[in-house]
C-alpha cells in the first residue's frame, strides 16, 4: 500500500499488482465483463432477429401509457423516461456512497445507500406495473397481441425478447438491491469501521452502476429505436 506512483514504476516487474487494484475489485470487473457479454448476446440476438424480419411492432404503440393514466391515452416514452431517471439518480446516490466510504464518513454511506435502495425498489415497482399492464393487454412469452408497424401480424419474437431481456435486467436490479441491503446492514454493524476501509461498498457500487449501464442499452434498443 505504500509504493508511490511514479512514471518509472515497473508494473510488470513482479511483487505488485500490475493493474494496481485490489483483488476483489479486479474480480468484480472481470465478472462484469462476462456479464456484459451475456447481455450483449441477448441484445445482439434481438437485433439479428429484428433484422431478419420484414416488419416489427412500433414501440410507441406498445408502450404508450403510465399508471393512473386516463383511459385511451396515447403517451409513449413518459413512463420509461421516469424509470430511466430513477435508475440514473440511484446510480448517483451510489457513487456518493462510495465516495463517502473513501472518506470513512459512515453517516454519508448509510444515507446514500438507503437512497439507492429506495431507487432500486422504485424501479422494480415500475417494472412490475409495466409487466402487469402488458400481460393484461395479452402480451406474454409466446403471445403477442401487437401488430407490426406496417399493419401485418407480428410474431412472438417481439414479446419473447422483451420479457426475457427486461426480466433478466430486472433480476439484476433485484440482486443489486439485495447486495446494497447487505452492505447497509454491514455498515450499520460497523463491520467496515472495524476493518478500517469501505472498499466493499466500491465493489457493490461497480455492480450497481453496471445495472444502470445495461438499462441505458435496453432502454434504447426496446423503447427508442
Amino acid at each position: 500500500m505504500s509504493t508511490a506512483l511514479t512514471a518509472q514504476t515497473k508494473w510488470w516487474g513482479g511483487g505488485k499488482s500490475p493493474v494496481n487494484v485490489e483483488y476483489g475489485k479486479l474480480m468484480m470487473w472481470y465478472f462484469l465483463i462476462s456479464d456484459s457479454f451475456t447481455f450483449g448476446a441477448f441484445l445482439i440476438t434481438y437485433g439479428a432477429v429484428r433484422f431478419s424480419a420484414n416488419a416489427w411492432p412500433d414501440p410507441n404503440e406498445v408502450f404508450n401509457t403510465f399508471p393512473f393514466a386516463p383511459e385511451g391515452i396515447n403517451a409513449p416514452l413518459v413512463f420509461v423516461s421516469i424509470m430511466t431517471f430513477i435508475l440514473i439518480l440511484s446510480s448517483v446516490t451510489m457513487v456518493l456512497a462510495v465516495q463517502a466510504g473513501h472518506h470513512n464518513d459512515k453517516k454519508g454511506v448509510v444515507r446514500n445507500l438507503i437512497l439507492t435502495i429506495i431507487g432500486g425498489f422504485a424501479f422494480l415497482g415500475c417494472q412490475a406495473w409495466e409487466w402487469t399492464h402488458l400481460f393484461h393487454e395479452g402480451a406474454w412469452w409466446g403471445s403477442n397481441p401487437f401488430l407490426n408497424s406496417d399493419g401485418t401480424a407480428g410474431t412472438v419474437n417481439f414479446t419473447n425478447f422483451f420479457f426475457t431481456i427486461t426480466g433478466f435486467h430486472g433480476f439484476h436490479v433485484f440482486t443489486g438491491v439485495i447486495i446494497n441491503i447487505i452492505m447497509l446492514i454491514m455498515t450499520l454493524n460497523n463491520v467496515f469501521e472495524k476493518r478500517g476501509h469501505y472498499l466493499m461498498i466500491e465493489k457493490a457500487g461497480l455492480y450497481w452502476h453496471f445495472v444502470d449501464l445495461v438499462w441505458v442499452f435496453v432502454f434504447t434498443c426496446f423503447y427508442l429505436i
Binding site: N54, A55, F135, H136, E137, G138, A139, W140, S143, N144, P145, F146, L147, G151, T152, A153
Partner: peptide
C-alpha cells in the same frame, strides 16, 4: 404477411389473456 384490421385484431387478441 397479411394485413390485419388493427382495431379488431387487438380486441380479439386481448380477450384470452
Amino acid at each position: 404477411t397479411i394485413k390485419v384490421n388493427k382495431a379488431e385484431y387487438k380486441h380479439d387478441a386481448a380477450k384470452p389473456a
